[in-house]
Nucleic acid binder design. Structure first.
Lengths: 113, 113
DNA sequence: TCTATATTTCCACAATTATGGAAATAATGC
DNA sequence: GCATTATTTCCATAATTGTGGAAATATAGA
């Protein structure tokens, strides 16, 4: 990953509404949530929501698929992993107390396809 | 960490000049670098640099100390660790392939005071 | 005190980002 | 085709962020 991609991805979650959307999608798992459901839960009007979803999609942190009239959005775990890896490698390089605690990971709950 | 702090910290590194500054300071280690040296290496004019350093300081990702006429800036490793931990816990929770590879950490090079 | 150097503050301006109503587009069932 | 529902696009406007010259501030040494 280059620095411009990192900045694009960071920018996409450096906004409260979008970080909330992303968190919600992570919690929702691989099935994801339709746009309307996200907007309803987070109280975000349709056009504003669409704007934020586009930002996250452009950055590659979420994906979407159409199911009937609904468009389901899902967190792109691999992209988030890549961003965290970039920050860990490039911004913590060799500094042993500048790395995240990953004990909450690798549980039995992993559910990416 | 709450979501607002996370957004503030993410915003502070979601900008190319600032991410470069932060990376440079991480590489510089605990001694850090004086503002002038950062500006010289990254070709950033003084007032612009000062603006960006203030943003990073406000977010808590860097610290500063005065040494004679120089102000040395240092990366706040603990803060970066906290941010990565937040993202790992809140945005990857329980998803085992959504976690960073930390094998580059915990080397013998750890040098925080 | 005068001068040199380091950094910040002030300020104006430019650029980008965020918001949400209204209209448009798209998909489904009758 | 028409009505219904889901989502996006368009648009105007507001708010925030980024830039850098010039002046101000701060520190140090002669």
């Amino acid at each position: 990953m280059d620095i411009k991609s990192a900045v694009t991805q960071l920018s996409s979650i450096a906004q409260e509404a979008r970080l909330e959307i992303f968190r919600l999608l992570v919690q929702a798992g691989i099935e994801g949530l339709p746009a309307g459901s996200i907007g309803e839960q987070l109280k975000i009007p349709p056009s504003t929501l669409s704007f934020h979803l586009k930002e996250l999609s452009y950055a590659g942190l979420i994906n979407s698929r159409q199911v009937s009239r609904f468009i389901y959005y899902t967190a792109n775990y691999a992209a988030m992993n890549g961003l965290l890896a970039y920050l860990t490698e490039n911004c913590c390089a060799g500094v042993n107390n500048c790395c995240p605690d990953v004990t909450s990971c690798n549980s039995e709950k992993g559910n990416e396809s």
